[in-house]
Design a protein around this nucleic acid. Structure first.
Lengths: 224, 224
DNA sequence: TTGACATATTAAACATTGTTTAATAATTGA
DNA sequence: TCAATTATTAAACAATGTTTAATATGTCAA
């Protein structure tokens, strides 16, 4: 028996806190479980192919429960998409290009982007659907803000190199560093999308060689 | 009364033919009516936003009837998409570049593509959804074959210029003319997609200037 | 003219979506 | 033990693409 009520109440208080903590953990675990199921389903079937019932089945719980933890399908998708961006960013940052000249850094960034496309095609699909298909689907609100920020973060890695290259005069001075950055990014991304559409297979071209070709065109120009 | 049965039967025959012809016309008109409605709906709402009931309402007939004239939604969409490609192709061909040097022709093609994007944004959306979003949606069969052929036809306009440029030595000889073609096409298309995603607005860049920048990078290189 | 037959057309049904709701089960704190 | 909050579910809902079964329409032969 608690002779001292202060101690008793204090004990109860800490227990309550511990329980609250445990419940918070369990809640988080449910969330994770749903996200894990969602990831496998989205990666396998894509945004449109994946259904909430698929995810619920994979997570072994009812579809309705997902809405207890997430606002809607886009919200869940947004989380997976965010994860995809983190993988992309980690690969782009892993280029280990410190100290190398800016032109070399650019090549490394381009190759790293290609590596992401080749090694994580499902994640690439997730991202490119967000980037290109969403005027039609309608991801809204702060989710898309966060994803846009991550997307920009990737491009910014290239921008920093452009700035550096202009500073050390290995690049011609540009009117606008962002204009050059977007040009390069567009050309790299473009060549990957071309591959995704099957045109390289059509002409027996290798994507890696094609990227090197693209890099050399960008860096050296095509005019004799 | 027909005293001569040969004439009578012949007359009936031609009437039957005329009726058959009229019915064929009416059938074609129904088809056109549906396509016209579909076009306005698809252009306004995009592939995913458009519903068969929307189209039926616009055409003032029942949704089921559409399936009497078309296999399914994708089939209808394919027709609109084909129209979009024809517009693109006509614009690309209208460049009036006969006699100009290949490098100039390339610039004109690039600008023409941009013009299509700026003047027919809804058609551009239709095409780019076909090009990029369809692993998830699943357009199948000969429709996609026909669309791919049209898409390739567009790229081939650039390829012919590349071949010509190498022949007259205004371009460095390339291992593969298609490799160069795809590089250029990717860079041009890429810069437009970058704009579509809103990055140029973000940095106060103008799409036309950006395309010129892209062209100059491609043609002159960025290295000092 | 009538009736059979093919075609055009529709309304309704169907299966599958994302999402909501209302009810139930579980857990906690008093 | 009980009230209340929370977690969970089954069922319902509205909207989709598509199918079906029925109906209207028009054609042709007898």
């Amino acid at each position: 028996m608690n002779l001292n009520p202060r101690i008793g109440s204090q004990c109860m208080k800490t227990i309550s806190q511990a329980i609250a903590r445990r419940k918070e953990n369990e809640k988080q675990e449910r969330r994770e479980r749903i996200l894990s199921a969602a990831k496998s389903v989205f990666l396998k079937k894509g945004y449109l192919g994946a259904t909430m019932r698929d995810i619920a089945l994979q997570a072994e719980l009812s579809p309705g429960l997902i809405y207890h933890y997430f606002d809607n399908k886009d919200h869940v998708y947004g989380q997976i998409c965010e994860e995809a961006f983190h993988i992309l960013l980690s690969i782009l940052r892993k280029t280990e290009s410190a100290g190398k000249p800016p032109l070399m850094k650019m090549e490394l960034i381009a190759r790293a982007y290609l590596r992401f496309y080749l090694e994580y095609p499902e994640y690439f699909e997730i991202i490119s659907f967000k980037e290109l298909g969403f005027k039609q689907v309608g991801l809204r609100g702060e989710i898309v803000e966060r994803l846009n920020r991550l997307s920009l973060e990737a491009i910014n890695l290239l921008h920093e190199i452009v700035v550096e290259g202009i500073a050390d005069q290995s690049l011609v001075p540009q009117r606008d560093t962002w204009a050059t950055t977007l040009s390069l990014w567009a050309a790299i991304e473009g060549i990957i999308f071309i591959h995704k559409r099957g045109y390289m297979e059509m002409f027996g071209l290798d994507i890696r060689q094609q990227l090197e070709h693209q890099i050399s065109i960008l860096l050296d120009g095509i005019r004799r």
